[in-house]
């Protein structure tokens, strides 16, 4: 009444998990066994209805956010534990020195660089440097309310920090960087598996719209000025993705 093959080997055949010789053996068997032929047809139609019924359930965006917050918490706590208390004094002192130095350095640097305060090569270098292990973020957080205050006292301006996870550009974190000899804020966003650096520095130049993207060595960047700040976003994502993020920030 029941063929042994129907109960097992048929499924290996259906799933493409039989080796070539066993598959050939089963195909020969199929020619003579009506039970297996019928069963295979039934299994194939079951499979196609399973595949056609959109049963796969994707994680909601809210869950993704909660998990990122968990990871931040788990990372931040362990980093804090590993750095002995006296070292924090050193960190604070360094930050103070950098902040003081940059306060005095701004005007001169601004004057010497009339239009673009940095070159394409410098942007690419800074982007590539950030992708090296451990260089991406000084403050790793998807929470704009964590990243924004982190810059307080480290720079003589307040970079606008916003998470765009709902729009497909989750905030990864921020760090201090140097671009064209200036201290700048770098905001890091991710787009699928790609990372985007957005460099922000103050400017005295008037506002400019988002320029058409520049490209070199497989990287694209866009540049604009808005409300006394200069922005440059760079990544290996497509130019249209980059433009989309630029528009989100511009608004």
């Amino acid at each position: 009444m029941s063929c042994d093959f129907t109960r097992t080997v048929l499924h290996g055949y259906l799933d493409g998990e039989l080796d070539a010789s066993r598959a050939a053996e089963f195909e020969r068997h199929l020619e003579s066994c009506r039970e297996c032929a019928t069963a295979l047809g039934a299994e194939e139609s079951l499979r196609s209805s399973l595949h056609g019924a959109s049963l796969y359930e994707r994680a909601p965006v809210s869950l993704r956010k909660k998990i990122r917050a968990d990871l931040d918490a788990a990372t931040a706590v362990s980093v804090a534990l590993r750095i002995p208390a006296w070292r924090w004094l050193g960190v604070a002192a360094a930050v103070l020195i950098v902040a003081t130095f940059s306060w005095y350095a701004w005007p001169r640097v601004q004057n010497s660089a009339a239009s673009a305060p940095f070159t394409a090569a410098e942007i690419i270098d800074a982007h590539v440097r950030s992708l090296q292990p451990g260089h991406l973020t000084d403050v790793a957080s998807t929470d704009q309310h964590t990243v924004k205050p982190w810059f307080n006292g480290k720079l003589a301006f307040v970079p606008p920090v916003k998470d765009f996870a709902d729009e497909g550009f989750p905030l990864v974190g921020g760090r201090l960087d140097v671009l064209g000899g200036q201290n700048v804020a770098a905001l890091v966003y991710s787009r699928r598996k790609h990372l985007i650096n957005v460099f922000v520095l103050p400017t005295k130049e008037p506002d400019t719209p988002i320029h058409p993207p520049g490209a070199r060595q497989g990287y694209q960047w866009v540049h604009w000025r808005h409300q006394g700040m200069e922005f440059c976003a760079i990544s290996d994502v497509s130019a249209s993705d980059l433009h989309e993020l630029a528009q989100l920030i511009y608004q």
Binding site: S78, L81, V172
Partner: peptide
């Protein structure tokens, strides 16, 4: 459980 920013990026 001692994880740093590098682990975080790799996990991501």
């Amino acid at each position: 459980d001692v994880l740093d920013a590098q682990d975080r990026a790799r996990f991501e």
